[in-house]
Design a protein around this nucleic acid. Structure first.
Length: 599
RNA sequence: UGGGGUGUCGCCAAGUUGGUAAGGCACAAGGUUUUGAUCCUUGCAUGCGUUGGUUCGAGUCCAGCCACCCCAGCCA
């Protein structure tokens, strides 16, 4: 049994998050931790804490899954000192119609990227199919399951409604022998999909619909991505999940709130199997010691994550991918882990986010601002600074010698020691158009005619002349530099504004992709708005070409993050950026009290 | 009109056995600053869905209301 180890993100500047609970080595506690602590105190599980993360490989992981991953893997880490703690990765692959190997590979990559390590080998529910089948046979032998030959439509009628009890299936009292024979023939491929099903014999009058003789096996003549053509019957979630947990000797089976109603069924299945058969199977699989006490897993539910201006349903994300509304599962606007990664979110920021949102049983919608705060917090301390001019405006320094060029050295970070980078400075350079106004609004601290501004890391300049083209658009600024202001403030006056710039001769061309929220509506899931796609933000992607970045960025590696000073945090696109054609994605803007105040 | 849940500041969320409402985000005001960033300081619930009750004392106990969420897949 390999214990999972502490997060170890391979990603560049991912793991140095400061003053966060994680960095301090303590994550906030919550009801699930309290419960485990209590169980440990009672020695309920012989000093073990065994969790599992059980995704179905039918799509990519999103930030909501990150909450569950951080919970399950995080718990395993947090209890490392006090218990034998570990977290399994198990693909819950009981529905071959929707699953694929592509998703399995993507999910594994995302979990590793997030910085977690699973216990031992990856597990698959499908690898328990034989056990599951044998347990089904056992239930039949014990008169606790029967083959039902109602059609799906008929079964629905017999089930009753929320307020009326269901009726017993006419097949409910089939003999054990007939059930055994039928079920085996179902697996042998003698029947078509839907012709029969195997149901647990519980109580058709239960107020909990899940207990009204739930189907536990259905016929699906489909090739499975792991077991190929071995099976014609596949187990249902409720049946497979609890048994898989039991086989892996899971202590705490954590899931989201909507499964709360299923908990009685989870328990019923386990309690109605011969206890020793479960224990023996668990032991045979090497998931428990011979002398170890065998304890059944216990399901506990927590609220799933919702974030405003975001959709989290896998179905909807998949729809956007399939309709081409986004470039793929890893489109930087997607809340998928691969999308966030491509956007420039770091594993540490996502983990920190999962820490600060808390864990409870009340359904809530977290403000995206929390996510943005997490990444700003990380990148502020870890991302080197650089200058990038998004919309270039030429500036000529009239009093600077034509052929002179001096090398300026700027620190890569204002506080942390991250070294320096060199930027050549010459007579002509570019600043951002938004940093110049012919008629400056009150409080404007940038450049305007007759006024001064500091060029970051260089001189104070004054704008003498504005050159416009025929249409009246400003095309060039002629300024002069106060040559006595390099590294020091001018005498007798204070220059408030500081703007970024890029040297005309050595700046590098770049494409910059500015991302905004994918949805305009705070709650795209709101059914009164109609289809969620109605809330799509038409301006969620803005591609800026002709941007100029300082030459030090020539060697920027894919996925490297930078703060483009006064603009925001950007990362090198891991797919599209080339040394000769740099592409940056804006991860998030800087907080901007000026822009906020001025709309 | 069945069953299961949840309701503490604009958004998350702590609130052990009842003892007089943590923290984060956001926001606001100051200070520092060659990033209108960061950082620092300060402010931000006489109130805990609501109405009653028990008690010297209730977010915490009791009762009744109200609101919202989940469940009638051979999906997970």
């Amino acid at each position: 049994m390999t214990a999972s180890s502490p997060p170890n993100a391979k990603h560049g500047n991912a793991d140095k998050s400061h003053n966060s609970a994680e960095a301090a080595g303590k994550s906030p506690s919550h009801f699930i931790r309290h419960m485990i602590e209590q169980d440990l105190g009672l020695d309920k599980h012989n000093g073990r804490v065994q969790t599992r993360f059980p995704p179905e490989p039918n799509g990519f992981l999103h930030i909501g899954h990150a909450k569950s991953i951080c919970l399950n893997f995080g718990l395993a880490q947090q209890f490392q000192e006090r218990a034998r703690a570990a977290c399994n990765l198990r693909f819950d692959d009981t529905n071959p119609a929707k699953e694929s190997q592509e998703f399995i590979d993507a999910i594994k990559a995302d979990i590793e990227w997030l910085g977690f390590e699973w216990n031992g080998e990856v597990r698959y529910t499908s690898s328990y199919f034989q056990h599951l089948y044998d347990f089904a046979l056992q239930l039949i032998r014990n008169g606790k399951a029967y083959v039902c030959s109602l059609t799906p439509d008929e079964a629905r009628e017999y089930r009753g409604t929320l307020t009326e009890p269901g009726r017993n299936s006419p097949y409910r009292e089939r003999s054990v022998d007939e059930n055994l024979d039928l079920f085996q023939r179902m697996q042998a491929g003698e029947f078509a999909d839907g012709e029969h099903s195997l149901r647990a014999k519980i109580d058709m009058a239960s107020p909990n619909i899940n207990m009204r003789d739930p189907v536990i096996y259905r016929i699906r003549k489909l090739r499975h991505h792991q077991t190929a053509d071995s099976w014609n019957v596949y187990p249902m979630y409720d049946y497979a999940h609890c048994i898989s947990d039991a086989l892996e000797h899971i202590t705490h089976s954590l899931c989201t709130l909507e499964f709360e109603d299923h908990r009685p069924l989870y328990d019923w299945i386990l309690l109605n199997l011969e206890p020793d058969s479960l224990r023996q199977a668990c032991h045979a699989l090497g998931n428990m010691g011979a002398d170890e006490p065998y304890v059944l897993p216990q399901q506990t539910e927590f609220a799933r994550l919702n974030i405003n201006y975001t959709v989290m349903s896998k179905r909807k994300l998949k729809e956007m991918v399939e309709l081409g509304l986004v470039s793929g599962w890893d489109d930087p606007r997607m809340p998928t882990l691969s999308g966030l990664r491509r956007r420039g979110y770091t594993p540490a920021a996502i983990r920190h986010f999962c820490d600060i949102i808390g864990m409870s049983r009340s359904e809530s919608i977290v403000d995206v601002g929390m996510l943005e705060h997490s990444i700003r917090d990380d990148l502020d301390t870890n991302a080197p600074r650089a200058m990038c001019v998004l919309r270039p405006l030429k500036v000529t320094l009239t009093n600077y010698p034509d052929d002179k060029q001096e090398m300026l050295s700027l620190p890569c970070h204002p506080k942390n020691d991250m070294g320096h980078r060199e930027i050549p400075f010459g007579k002509t350079l570019y600043i951002d158009r938004s940093d110049f106004e012919q008629v400056p609004p009150p409080g404007f601290k940038r450049l305007s005619p007759e006024r001064e501004v500091r060029l970051r890391g260089a001189y104070v300049i004054r704008c003498d002349e504005v050159i416009t083209d025929d249409s009246g658009e400003v095309v060039e600024l002629r300024c002069h530099a106060d040559l006595d202001t390099l590294g020091k403030n001018p005498e007798g006056r204070k220059v408030k504004g500081v703007i970024h710039w890029v040297p005309a001769e050595s700046a590098l061309a770049a494409e910059v992709r500015i991302y905004d929220r994918l949805f305009n509506n705070e709650n795209p899931d709101d059914k009164s708005l109609g289809d969620f796609k109605n809330s799509l933000n038409p301006d969620s992607l803005q591609i800026l070409t002709g941007c100029l970045v300082e030459p030090s960025l020539a060697s920027a590696a894919p996925e490297a993050s930078f703060q483009f000073e006064r603009e925001g945090y950007f990362c090198v696109d891991r797919h599209d950026s080339r040394p000769d054609r740099l592409v940056f994605n804006r991860t998030v803007s800087l907080r901007d009290s000026w822009g906020k105040q001025n709309g």
